[in-house]
């Protein structure tokens, strides 16, 4: 094949690549990049009780950053993120560990993993609602505890409380930890573990010196998912706290329902910055590029 034809072919292939990614680029441009830019533009707009006024003012940011409510809400959201992250990591790690190292048969491993992922493909809102008959004042849990004589009055804090919010977050998000951690664990060379054991390392030593360091990329990816999903959430907090807890997403949503779009936009831009900083911090600690 002569050089000219090969060159022509390479150029065609180059163009083919661009054509193949063009639809993806178009969707992201139209429905992600332009909307975020719109948010940023609108966050500088002015507004009164009736309408949004195109302008360039900093009052929205000033309002967001100087309000005590904002800081309290961020604090409450960070608290949710931290608690949920810690619990999902703990549960997710051990579930992944069991699947990766204790289930020998490949078929059983796939089946059990699938069993964990199936709920992910069903409705989150339904999964939230399904806790109501469980946690309510006359719910299953209170009845069981009363029946066993462990308590004498129904526990009130189970439903519509911070407890319920955290519980449902853990219920919905643990899978986002299990999957990436399981993935990295499956790639750990088993001979490393054997070598460590042969050299006299005990269970915990193998865990802390071999498995955890090698599982870090998976832990990081899971953490990014959990932290960003909790930080941006509004529906879980609203449904499960019965309107008693605050979150940044909920604050933005209530501004939207009051039609205070510039204020909501400024709040959203601040939230985006905070989330990107958190993701950046996680990526600084762990290099996940090898995973992709």
């Amino acid at each position: 094949m002569n050089a000219g034809r090969a060159g022509g072919r390479r150029a065609r292939i180059g163009i083919a690549s661009y054509l193949q990614v063009a639809p993806l680029t178009a969707v992201f441009a139209l429905f992600l990049v332009v909307p975020i830019l719109t948010l940023i533009v609108v966050s500088f707009f002015d507004y009164d009780s009736v309408q949004v006024i195109p302008a360039f003012v900093l009052t929205n940011y000033h309002d967001v950053l100087s309000s005590e409510t904002t800081w309290r809400t961020y604090l409450s959201t960070f608290r949710f993120a931290l608690v949920v992250w810690a619990i999902t990591l703990l549960i997710g790690f051990w579930v992944a560990y069991y699947l990766a190292f204790f289930v020998r048969s490949k078929t059983l491993q796939t089946l059990l993993f699938l069993l964990c992922t199936i709920p992910f493909w069903t409705s989150n809102i339904i999964r939230m609602i399904s806790w109501v008959p469980f946690l309510g004042r006359n719910g299953l849990l209170n009845r069981a505890l009363l029946g066993m004589g462990l308590i004498h009055q129904p526990l009130e804090f189970l439903l519509f409380s911070d407890f319920a919010v955290v519980l449902v977050f853990v219920h919905l998000l643990t899978l986002f930890m299990v999957t990436p951690i399981f993935n990295t664990m499956m790639r750990i060379d088993r001979r490393l573990i054997e070598a460590a054991t042969d050299a006299g390392a005990r269970f915990w030593q193998v865990l802390f010196n071999v498995i955890i360091p090698l599982s870090k990329p998976g832990i990081a990816i899971g953490s990014i998912f959990v932290v960003t999903l909790v930080m941006g959430d509004f529906i879980t907090v609203r449904l499960m706290s019965g309107g008693q807890s605050a979150s940044v997403g909920l604050m933005i949503q209530s501004e939207i329902s009051l039609l205070q779009y510039p204020a909501a936009a400024a709040n959203a831009v601040v939230l985006l910055a905070v989330v990107l900083l958190m993701v950046g911090a996680i990526l600084r600690v762990v290099d996940i590029r090898k995973e992709l």
């Binding site: 990614v21 993806l24 680029t25 992201f28 429905f31 992600l32 990049v33 332009v34 909307p35 975020i36 719109t38 948010l39 609108v42 990014i224 998912f225 960003t228 930080m231 941006g232 959430d233 509004f234 997403g249 933005i252 949503q253 939207i256 779009y261 909501a264 936009a265 959203a268 939230l271 985006l272 989330v275 990107l276 993701v279």
Partner: peptide, 23 residues
């Protein structure tokens, strides 16, 4: 483009919703 793909997962949903709504 790859960064944008990952960003699309990370950006909180309510921002995408609000941004498109405003646009």
């Amino acid at each position: 483009l790859f960064t944008l793909t990952v960003a699309s997962l990370i950006v909180p949903s309510i921002l995408v919703s609000l941004g498109i709504g405003l646009l």
